[in-house]
Amino acid sequence: MYALKKKGLRHATKREKRSWLFGILFILPSVAALACMVVYPLILTFLYSVNKVLLPNFDLEFVGASNFMKALGSSQFPTVLKNTLIWTFGSLFLRFVLGFICAMMMETGFRGKTVFRVLTLLPWVMPSIVASNLWRWIYNVDNGILNYVLKQINPSLAINWLGNPSTALVSVIMAYVWTGFPYIMLMLVAGLQGIPKEYTEAAQIDGANSVQVFWHVTLPQLKSFIMILTILEIISGFNSFDLIFTMTGGGPGVSTEILGLNIYRTAFQNYDFGTASAIGVILLLIVLVAFLFYAPSNKKKQA
């Protein structure tokens, strides 16, 4: 069927044209939604990024690259970028460690495996706002359970986890890891199930121990899976908003502010839509580059 496409519209038979027409009619509503709610907004973002947006009527005044200069030149930008990178890669690492341990345990198989899987999925199922509330309560200075436990060990260990610039980011990352590691586990379990049993058995017969089997058979087989997961996790790290916004609001100061929050604050607290859009374009480009790594590996998998 794909061969037909090459012939071009003029040489298409009546039947092919009919098939095109039906296909296009079926996807029309979704394409319209895509055009109005994605393509058009993205065009606006690019447009605003080189303009000054005057409120309240959103009139535009062309300013060239000055929004980008302003965004990149701001004194907070390096901190925000650093936070974003720590947030993304720190949580990626921890999620993978936990997810991997879980997936490997599920593979070895033990009694209560199914129960374990269902229970560990719970954090992933939680709405982000509920996860945020649960952890805010745990981290609570006076009545939080974390400080209660720490006080039993040593009273000086109890600190204001979310209110202290040096611990706030790590504390929110822990909550973010909590909500995300079950997904990594699920995906890795699915990946592990895709490895033919003969491979590992053959290696075992050849005398490989379990570490060698893991390193030389399991891991290479999972490589493409891990690649895709890593890219998806990096993208969602860069895109995150909910947890940090509700747990610390980016504070204290800008100690937990990441790009997403920076855009929000620039746009809706400083009402500088132009600069916010410029930061948005920067974020978009980062994600687009990551996506381009994802899309080809995706195609290969489908074929």
């Binding site: 907004p41 606006l44 895109n239 929000y264 974020l283 990551a290 994802y294």
Partner: peptide, 24 residues
Amino acid sequence: PLLTSILFIRVLPRVCLLVPFYVI
């Protein structure tokens, strides 16, 4: 290309859409 673009929405930073959505 359309299928890929729909896939792309999933990874789109939604914060970037806030300003245009608000204006629209």
